[in-house]
Simulated scan of single mutants.
Amino acid sequence: MTNNNNNNNNHKQNNNLIQGFGTRAIHAGQDPDPATGAVIPPISLSTTFTQPSANAHQGYEYTRAANPNRNAFETAIASLEGAEYASAFSSGTAVITAILSILPAGSHLIASDAIYGGTYEAFSKIAIKQGIETTIIDLREPSHLTKLLKPNTKLVWIETPSNPTLRIDDIQAIAKYTHEQDAFLVVDNTFMTPYFQNPLQLGADIVMHSVTKFINGHTDVLMGVAATNRIDLHQELQYIQNFMGGVPSPFECYLARRGLMTLEVRMQRHEQNAFRLADYLLQHPQVTQVHYPGLNSHPQHTLAAKQQKGFGGMLSFTIKGNLNNVNALFQHLSLVKVATSLGGVESLVSSPAYTSHARLSQSLRDTLGITETLIRVSVGIESIEDLLADFKHALENAY
């Protein structure tokens, strides 16, 4: 059995030194290489590490258990989320799998219905095979939890803002009800990143991210991460990380750590552009609805402003017509690309009804507002005038 005691301390956030977000994003866990003085630590590709004796090691033994590049990334994420611990995985869905693996058979979990399609699949079709009962429901009214929580409820899961309709759940209120049942709360913070929202400070027990998205920010890494202040949950996650083996490669950890260095400035530009685009779309005659929490017209704008530090770079909008008009709009976009995923420096559009949420039933998609004319936009950091011109041209030629 691998001994990770030394590694546990490598992830811990030093709360004695409070620095600005941008400073921590650049420096946390990013010490110069002691052997060469290299400012950027090298990529450590070795799968094994020498040991001074049979019952001791120098912090690293086998790279599935711990790796210098992974530790550097985990330390930075813990710092930015205000967490004691962080555990990186090979993808966001690997994080979901790991958290489900914490639950004993016979457990009950409750999840918001406004979640990523892959998360919905994991809960509705995979968790049941592990003997886990699942309730997926609208949690915009947190008090509904009082009627849903059971003695065997172990986990409540929300994603706020949600993918793709940017719905907001009240983290603090949901955490209160969750903890009354002695369950733990997980918040998917992928859309906001730690720059705009820190769920642990609002009562969440675990915050997770698809690192693939804004955290890395360059559309070239597949990773996930979970952060927590609870040592019991961290130890469970670390055990699963090691013995189920869903860990990211050192190279991906290196790239993700590099991406973090510019997270602050990227998120500022993502948000600036998203505000401008949302305002433009809101006034367009062919657009029937715009989902962006930063708009005063968003039904949960006040709640978003209360629990977030900003509104991010994701929005969605609905256009008049049908799928033919959506495809015509896509075909006339030049700068903006049609692709799945989100959070990169480049702007992307997609049709959630046929991508991220395609496996959900038609009736459920309709209930959630994921219609065939809903378009999700990951607003990049290009020059805003170019983005506005591209959407203007596409909308003019979509009919």
Rank of each mutant, 00 (worst) to 15 (best):
A274L: 06
A274Q: 11
A274K: 08
A274C: 10
A274F: 01
A274P: 12
A274W: 05
A274H: 04
A274I: 11
F275K: 04
F275M: 02
F275H: 07
F275V: 09
F275E: 10
R276Y: 02
R276P: 03
R276A: 12
R276W: 00
R276E: 13
R276G: 00
L277I: 03
L277Q: 03
L277E: 02
L277C: 02
A278T: 05
A278G: 01
A278F: 03
A278Q: 00
A278L: 01
A278I: 05
A278C: 07
D279M: 02
D279G: 02
D279Q: 08
D279H: 05
D279T: 10
D279R: 06
D279S: 04
D279A: 11
D279C: 06
Y280A: 12
Y280I: 15
Y280K: 14
Y280R: 15
Y280L: 14
Y280H: 12
Y280W: 14
L281M: 04
L281Y: 02
L281I: 03
L281D: 03
L281C: 07
L282Q: 07
L282F: 00
L282W: 01
L282S: 13
L282E: 08
Q283D: 13
Q283I: 12
Q283R: 08
Q283T: 11
Q283A: 14
Q283E: 15
Q283F: 03
H284E: 10
H284R: 11
H284I: 07
H284Y: 03
H284S: 10
P285H: 14
P285G: 13
P285D: 15
P285E: 15
P285L: 11
Q286Y: 04
Q286F: 04
V287P: 06
V287G: 07
V287E: 06
T288H: 02
T288I: 09
T288P: 09
T288D: 06
T288C: 08
T288E: 05
T288R: 05
Q289R: 02
Q289Y: 00
V290P: 03
V290Y: 00
V290K: 01
V290E: 03
H291Y: 12
H291M: 12
H291D: 13
H291L: 10
H291R: 11
H291F: 09
Y292D: 13
Y292W: 10
Y292S: 15
Y292C: 15
Y292K: 13
Y292R: 15
P293R: 10
P293S: 14
P293F: 05
P293E: 13
G294I: 09
G294F: 03
L295G: 12
L295Y: 06
L295E: 08
L295C: 08
L295A: 13
N296D: 05
N296I: 01
S297R: 04
S297P: 00
S297G: 02
S297D: 02
S297Q: 09
S297M: 04
S297I: 02
H298A: 07
H298I: 08
H298F: 03
P299L: 00
P299Q: 01
P299N: 02
P299W: 03
Q300M: 05
Q300D: 06
Q300G: 00
Q300S: 06
Q300R: 09
Q300T: 02
Q300W: 01
Q300Y: 08
H301R: 08
H301F: 07
H301P: 05
H301L: 04
H301W: 00
T302P: 06
T302V: 10
T302D: 08
T302N: 09
L303C: 10
L303G: 15
L303Q: 15
L303K: 10
L303D: 14
A304R: 08
A304S: 13
A304N: 14
A304K: 10
A305F: 14
A305I: 15
